[in-house]
């Protein structure tokens, strides 16, 4: 059936309207704000404030640049660790578990994602935090529980709480798509269990691995409550900075500039990862 151009436009109209009102408009407001001069004491920029790029040059001030580096670095570490933990579990669930066990695993993982983020965060706080049950052990080993390195570790643990179940769910799909005969073929040809996974399973799951990594990165970079609570105010992410700009200081232009920078960085990351996928994926 052929649809005329007019019908196509009419059919697209509702979706376009929703996108304009709910996505393009708010984003353009943010973009517009990010170029305005801010007068301290106000909430948001003055109507008709003059244009400036100062909000962006502020990003390169070491203090702020550190927020970016820390956010992306910790999210990156957590995402990589999540993949390392998630892949063998996903492989086991997809390959070795009975269909009954697989169903229970998947339900449990989805259930875990439904758990309130605050519950998870306080659970970690109660385990690894200064008054947590592991506190005495940590102080026994001489770990400074208020020091930066330890707080980074606790934040990564907090991020993993989201990322591991999510990655497992994504990777189960990738492993299920893989012909189990391929691993057997590799082993029949003399590759050890480890070699067969390295040369066959991993390269063929690369799409799933990159998707899981990107989703983990997204969850990690945009984390707000995890660093907010587990960072004890000492280690904060960009999201916390943006919140304080908007909510506490009322400096909308600066908060908007941070937000735009984050969007650009994330798009760049997605672009790089998809390039990487095309390079690595030979299937």
């Amino acid at each position: 059936m052929k649809t005329s151009a007019r019908t196509t436009i009419l059919l697209l109209l509702p979706a376009v309207a929703i996108y304009v009102v709910l996505l393009a408009l708010p984003l353009s407001t943010v973009l517009e704000q990010s170029f305005r001069v801010f007068t301290p004491g106000r909430i948001g920029s003055e109507a008709g404030a003059s244009l400036t790029t100062e909000n962006y040059s502020e990003l390169f001030v070491p203090v702020y640049a550190h927020y970016f580096i820390r956010t992306y670095l910790l999210a990156f570490c957590a995402s990589v660790i999540a993949l390392i933990f998630a892949f063998p579990i996903a492989y086991y669930i997809a390959r070795n578990a009975s269909s009954m066990a697989r169903k229970s695993w998947i339900s449990a993982l989805i259930g875990l994602l439904f758990l309130s983020s605050l519950v998870r965060i306080y659970a970690i706080q109660l385990t690894l935090g200064p008054v947590g049950i592991l506190g005495p052990a940590m102080s026994f080993f001489g770990v400074n529980m208020s020091g930066g390195p330890y707080l980074n570790f606790v934040i990564v643990a907090g991020l993993l709480h989201y990322q591991i179940p999510m990655s497992i769910l994504i990777l189960i799909g990738a492993v299920l798509n893989l012909n189990p005969r391929l691993t057997e073929a590799a082993q029949a040809l003399g590759a050890s269990a480890f070699s067969s996974h390295r040369t066959v399973t991993l390269p063929l799951c690369i799409k799933g691995l990159i998707s899981a990594f990107l989703v983990s990165m997204t969850l990690g970079v945009s984390a707000f409550a995890v660093p907010w609570i587990l960072g004890q105010g000492r280690v904060l992410f960009i999201s916390n900075l943006i919140y304080s700009r908007f909510g506490e200081v009322g400096n909308y232009p600066s908060g908007a500039a941070f937000s735009v920078a984050m969007i650009v960085l994330s798009l760049l990351l997605i672009f790089l990862m998809s390039r990487l996928t095309t390079l690595l994926d030979r299937t």
Partner: peptide
């Protein structure tokens, strides 16, 4: 012996060629 410790050639029904090679 594990499969990779035996020298047995195996041709699978669906061939199981490595698609990325």
């Amino acid at each position: 012996l594990r499969p990779y410790e035996r020298n047995v050639g195996l041709l699978f029904q669906d061939y199981a060629l490595f698609p990325h090679l």
